[in-house]
Computed example of a mutant assay.
Amino acid sequence: MKILLYLEAENFLRKSGIGRAIIHQQRALDIAGVAYTTDPHEDFDIAHINTYGIKSLMLIFRAKRMGKKVICHGHSTMEDFKNSFVCSNLLAPLVKKYLTFLYNQADMVITPTEYSKKLISSYGIKAPIVAISNGIDLTKYARSTKKEQAFKQYFKIKDGQKIIMCAALYFKRKGIDDFCKIAEMMPDVRFIWFGETNVWTIPRWVRHLVKTNHPKNVEFPGYIKGDIYEGAMTASDVFFFPSHEETEGIVVLEALASDQNVVARDIPVYDGWLDNSAATFAKTNSDFVSALKNVLNGKIDKRQVGYQVAESRSIESISSQLVAAYQKLLGE
């Protein structure tokens, strides 16, 4: 069999979790020895669609006319569209209707967690929905002195300086406002937010927060990948993820694979795969501050169990699940 892995608007999405997810799919198929293409003009047996634009919809219609099987990847929901771009809350009901229509064109929907499966199922999707993690490359996030040094040199990290990092788009949904409020309550710690979003697509208050209206101990260096980012994952003291809504949270998997302490908001997406034995959860800013201080002071260390969670969702593990879903769809 041959799989078409399709990502519309790649230049726009490559910095997002969806951009990472398709790279993980490619790696998973390489491991399994399954042929794939990213060119929709080549022959294929299954079109695995990762995006939701008009080109994606047209490709679904074309694949169906050709008698090919179609998988829509449920990376997005109405719930995680809210509190993101300008007018996202106003448009959210329309987005739900569109996603429902699009997912109903598929022969199968793959989504990263049981939580996102439950949400998508509630839309009235007729196709079978399968929960398969986006997976994580354990070797990529293994501790490296070279990478850690690259991170420390780039940010001029001083010996003994405490670092709390996050990686996300500039969205209220990601908890960017709480990240800054908590940093203000911990002035002796450096807070670094990796990632970026086109500033003209986000609300003005978020734009101002990123540009000027944030505490002195908060930094927004933009989108950084490679050695510096991977070094930050292992060399920082805490990965802090205050997101309000996710379908999985690839960056959390990256942190767990980096053998890093994770403090995250207590939200339903983690139910069934990430619990208090592997990460520290909180709901209020005061509880976040308490949890972060306990990690920094060495009172909390859940890294060993957290890494085991990452191992359970490694790309090698996900590879077999993905291939099984493809084979089931083709009746093999």
Rank of each mutant, 00 (worst) to 15 (best):
K15I: 15
Q25D: 06
Y36M: 05
T37S: 02
T38A: 00
H41T: 07
A47F: 04
I49C: 04
L59D: 14
A63H: 15
K68Q: 13
I71D: 13
E79Y: 06
F81T: 10
S84H: 12
A92N: 06
L94F: 08
K96V: 10
L99S: 05
L99V: 09
Q105A: 04
M108F: 03
S116Q: 07
I125H: 03
V130C: 07
I136K: 05
K140T: 12
A142H: 05
A150C: 07
Y154D: 07
Y154K: 01
I157D: 03
Q161W: 14
M165S: 03
A167V: 12
G175Q: 09
G175L: 12
I176R: 01
F191K: 13
W193E: 04
F194E: 14
I202W: 08
W205P: 10
V210L: 09
K211D: 15
N217D: 11
N217W: 06
N217K: 09
V218C: 13
F220N: 04
A232H: 11
M233V: 12
A235G: 11
S243K: 07
E246Y: 05
E248G: 14
S258I: 10
Q260C: 09
Q260H: 07
Q260P: 10
V263M: 07
A264D: 07
I267A: 00
A278M: 10
A279S: 14
A282P: 15
K283T: 14
S286Y: 08
F288C: 06
S290C: 11
A291Y: 11
L292G: 08
L296T: 13
Q304A: 08
L322C: 05
L329N: 02
